[in-house]
């Protein structure tokens, strides 16, 4: 087995022992319960409220869960010095990062598949738009995993890392809106806002929510651009991590 594979398996075993990992079950139960609650709060559009809530909450819960898992796992490894056990072995640091990334990506894939199956069973929308939406969600999660790895390895503090990743997620979802608001309200600030726009990822691209809720047309090619974009941003984050940790002794 390759060194990357070994790191992945080691990470998965560590995650399995983490109590946070099993928090996924109550989290999903809460999401489903809250979705049913939202349906009851609407007077005239119960089904729509249900579908909207499910789509939004599963994406949010999956992102929060995987980010917490990555940050806590990485932080614990750095804090307990367990990371020395790995990086002192004949393994390149980029292999270590890739191993970690693959392990968390597999967990994310599992979460997305469960969310998709739930959406399909509960009749949230037609199968094809749902599949496209959740594939896009998976790529958003991959970007978030790599960002969480970069931020945790950079900051090495649990609260700062969580705040940093949360900020990354929020800014990533609002870059376009920030520019639009700036254009209308404070055009002098637009160049400054554009720095965020070009540096942070545009996470809003990873969604087909409108197609699911309005039963609009969606094709498999709608995935191609976001996938290419995600691959590019993953490469950016990976390079940042490699440059950052190449001579770090943690």
């Amino acid at each position: 087995m390759s060194r990357i594979g070994i790191v992945s398996i080691y990470t998965l075993q560590e995650v399995r022992r983490d109590r946070l990992f099993w928090g996924f079950v109550p989290l999903m139960l809460f999401v489903i319960a809250f979705t049913f609650f939202m349906r009851e709060t609407s007077i005239v559009a119960g089904a729509e409220a249900f579908n909207r809530s499910y789509i939004a909450l599963t994406a949010l819960a999956a992102a929060v869960f995987i980010v917490l898992l990555v940050v806590s796992s990485m932080y614990r490894e750095i804090d307990s010095k367990a990371i020395f056990m790995v990086i002192t072995k004949p393994i390149a640091r980029h292999e270590y990062i890739l191993g970690k990334f693959i392990a968390f990506s597999l967990i994310s894939l599992g979460i997305i598949m469960i969310s998709f199956a739930g959406a399909f069973i509960l009749g949230v929308g037609p199968a094809k738009p749902l599949a496209v939406h959740y594939i896009l969600c998976l790529f958003e999660q991959l970007v978030m995993i790599m960002a969480a790895l970069a931020i945790t390895l950079g900051l090495r503090s649990l609260p700062s890392s969580i705040l940093g990743v949360a900020g990354f997620y929020i800014i990533g979802h609002s870059t376009k809106k920030m520019v639009d608001i700036g254009m209308n309200m404070a055009s002098a600030w637009v160049p400054a806002i554009k720095v965020f726009y070009y540096l942070f990822p545009s996470l809003s691209l990873f969604s087909a929510q409108a197609a699911v809720l309005e039963q609009g047309t969606v094709s498999w090619t709608d995935i191609l651009f976001p996938v290419g974009y995600a691959a590019l941003y993953l490469a950016v984050l990976f390079l940042i991590i490699v440059i950052d940790i190449r001579k770090r002794d943690f």
């Binding site: 070009y198 651009f225 290419g228 390079l239």
Partner: peptide, 28 residues
């Protein structure tokens, strides 16, 4: 390679990212 090429590659990727962000939003 580590000192020069990696930062250069990062810069190129960031420029490409800026380009793709514009293309992506124009497309949508």
């Amino acid at each position: 390679f580590k000192k020069v090429l990696l930062p250069c590659a990062l810069l190129i990727l960031l420029v490409l990212h800026a380009f793709l962000v514009d293309v992506g939003w124009k497309g949508s």
